[in-house]
Design a protein around this nucleic acid. Structure first.
Length: 648
DNA sequence: CGGGGGGACT
DNA sequence: AGTCCCC
């Protein structure tokens, strides 16, 4: 009984999940907009990896064989997308664009086309700026330093679609009773604002989900794509009235659709529920058939509980506590944090696949090619201009011979481990069939120091790396002289040792932005300091700011390719036109008209007439001291500030 | 069917 | 070094 207790919800965060619409196709379309109106698809080897919505309208879909695609839609335009550097570059550019809006640096990429952003601090800050008596004419401040930059919006309305669809907000008690609804409204308007910026300034459309966790925000976005956005609305938790919306939403999903439940776990869970071995015809999801086993099926089975799930799902390679984690996912609970933006990747890997690779000369050639690519990538992703803490960027990418400017560059991190991975094909069975295997084997060794020499050319270094390191690693993996029949080779550097240094880390940058924000808060405080000289004398303000600064500095030292198509269910027929709330027009126009509009800043209103008594009281009485660093802040800023001290 | 990644954990 | 997970 109590072993089946529903885990507690923690809905204190607001998280936005972005998913760029048909990303690979969009990268081509961004360069060649005429493709947008034509059926267009991107090919890797023998399959369509993605296609635009015009192509989908004509019956094409992801992971379709090229032959089939041409048969269904003979006039489809197809581009080869096996060189993924352009996608990687575009992905980084869009990621940086989105990250620039963040105040707390919690912006995490998944693959090339998804980004989570934890906007709790922005939302809560702006909650304090709301005028409870005129929510319909609100202003969202998007910059910590500039109270003028932001957008007008209607805080009584949600931007985009709600889940459930029939949801209507109870406007009367928005502020007092249902603070979460109001916070989600703010999150949805911020999401819309960033999404439109992405489209207008970068040319990419996206689909967005808004909720209180990574899990729910990612899943709920799927309800309105492409170029739509959806928010899971309260009540999220269960009550006397029935299931909460979080559970209602999770229950509709096939078990394998839940992020965190992959092929292996889904297969085990399905077999447990059906009490039979997997049947790929009925259990899986080709052609839009729903999965036969849903989240509700698993969750409602009385024998299912965290301990049981732990036993069922535990195995080599699976983490401890998996049973409880899955139990939480089934209930729509995911407390994992959006990761802080990292200054350097934790791994760089290059791979290629082959029809057949089994002689030493071929292997040497491929290893050299991969090594060249790897060294080039290291110089792109791990190098910064001297005195600049951003990676060097794409402009110097991959041009091995041009090292003349290298004296200006500096390594942000030194990977310590070099790893060589191969995937041998299984030999033919006696009956002539082949067991398909995705098993990889790998061998690691220390990264030799010479790869960091910037005055030497990448070609020379790559050959040296093959000769002195990779060949012997390869022999450890494959002692036989030949006949390995490799289908894949992967070369990677991992185990990044960041070049310590001051303010070179994301943490350091975060402290910097934190301090700017606090300066802001303190400056805003001066507006009302006349009313309360005792508590915050102007002379002390600078002292506090100074102390805050010192404190910051001290701290600173201190399936396998899936055997199952990942999204076989795509059956989008038409582009969904975003149900555009009226305030969208204001939002779009906001950047263009003069910043000082009618309600452009609540600060101004307060400064000019001071008639909003509630506001005055709030600002006068709420100074608190941080127990960690002693900084004095108003309550609303303390919320974000405490998160800054929290272990990440 | 099947590309070229990336990350967490044991 | 291998097994999971994700796109």
């Amino acid at each position: 009984m109590e072993t089946r207790k529903v885990p507690p919800r923690k809905d204190g965060r607001i998280i936005i999940h972005f998913d760029y619409d048909c990303f690979y196709a969009a990268v081509f379309e961004a360069k060649n907009p005429s493709l947008k109106s034509l059926p267009f698809a991107v090919q890797q080897k023998q399959i369509i990896v993605t296609c635009n919505y015009e192509a989908r309208r004509r019956g094409l879909h992801k992971l379709q064989l090229i032959r089939e695609a041409r048969k269904v839609c003979p006039d489809v335009i197809i581009e080869l997308g096996e060189d993924i550097s352009r996608f990687r570059d575009a992905s980084k550019e869009l990621y940086k664009f989105i990250r620039a809006y963040s105040w707390n640096g919690k912006v995490e990429r998944l693959g090339f086309d998804e980004v989570w952003m934890d906007v709790t601090d922005m939302v809560d800050y702006n909650m304090q700026l709301l005028n409870p008596h005129n929510l319909a004419q609100s202003f969202f401040q998007t910059s910590q330093d500039d109270p003028m930059s932001g957008f007008n919006f209607d805080a009584t309305a949600l931007a985009g679609h709600p889940y459930p669809v029939e949801y209507t907000s109870q406007q009367q008690d928005l502020v007092v009773q249902d603070r979460l609804t109001l916070r989600l409204h703010l999150g949805s308007h911020l999401a819309l604002y960033i999404r439109h910026a992405l489209e207008q300034q970068k040319g990419y459309t996206s689909t967005v989900g808004i909720s209180t966790s990574k899990l729910l925000s990612k899943l709920v976005g799927n309800l309105n794509k492409p170029k739509g956005q959806t928010t899971v609305m309260p009540p999220l938790a269960a009550s006397d009235h029935g299931l909460g919306n979080a559970q209602l939403f999770m229950d509709t999903h096939g078990i394998g659709k839940v992020p965190g439940i992959g092929y292996k776990l889904a297969t085990l869970l399905r077999s447990y529920i059906t009490q039979r071995p997997p049947d790929y015809e009925t259990d899986l999801v080709y052609g839009g058939k729903p999965e036969i086993v849903s989240v509700a099926n698993v969750r409602n089975r009385s024998s299912v509980n965290p301990a049981m799930l732990e036993k069922l799902l535990d195995g080599p390679g699976s983490p401890h506590g998996i049973g409880y984690k899955i139990w939480c996912l089934l209930h729509g609970i995911d407390d994992t944090e959006v990761a802080q933006a990292k200054p350097v990747p934790s791994q760089i890997s290059i791979e290629d696949s082959y029809i057949r690779l089994d002689t030493m000369p071929e292997v040497l050639r491929e290893l050299t090619t991969l090594a060249r690519s790897l060294l080039a990538r290291m110089r792109i992703d791990l190098l910064a201009e001297d005195g600049v803490d951003e990676p060097a960027g794409v402009e110097d990418g991959g041009h091995e011979a041009t090292i003349t400017t290298s004296t200006l560059k500096k390594w942000l991190a030194h990977p310590k481990t070099l790893r060589l991975t191969t995937r041998p094909r299984q030999p033919l069975q006696p009956d002539g069939t082949r067991v398909r295997s995705f098993k990889r084997i790998s061998h690691s060794s220390p990264v030799p120091n010479f790869v960091f020499i910037l005055t030497e050319s990448i070609d020379i270094l790559a050959e040296k790396l093959v000769r002195e390191t990779l060949v012997s690693m390869f022999h450890k993996l494959h002692p036989e002289k030949s006949g390995w029949n490799l289908s894949l080779v992967n070369l990677a550097v991992t185990n990044m040792a960041e070049t310590g240094g001051d303010s070179k880390t994301a943490r350091g940058r975060d402290i910097g932005s934190m301090l700017r924000r606090q300066d802001d808060v303190l400056r805003d405080f001066k507006v009302i300091e006349e009313d309360d000289v005792e508590e915050v004398p102007p002379s002390r303000l600078t002292g506090l700011a100074h102390r805050a600064h010192e404190n910051g500095r001290v701290r600173d030292r201190s399936m396998r390719k899936d055997d199952v198509p990942k999204d076989p269910n795509i059956k989008v027929v038409d582009e969904v036109e975003e149900a555009t709330p009226t305030n969208v027009v204001e939002i779009i126009n906001d950047g263009e008209h003069d910043g000082g509009g009618t309600n452009g800043s609540m600060w101004q209103d307060e400064q000019e007439d001071g008639e909003e008594e509630e506001e005055e009281i709030r600002f006068d009485s709420d100074l608190q001291s941080c127990v960690d660093c002693g900084m004095q802040l108003p309550t609303f800023a303390m919320i974000a500030h405490r998160r800054f001290h929290a272990p990440s």
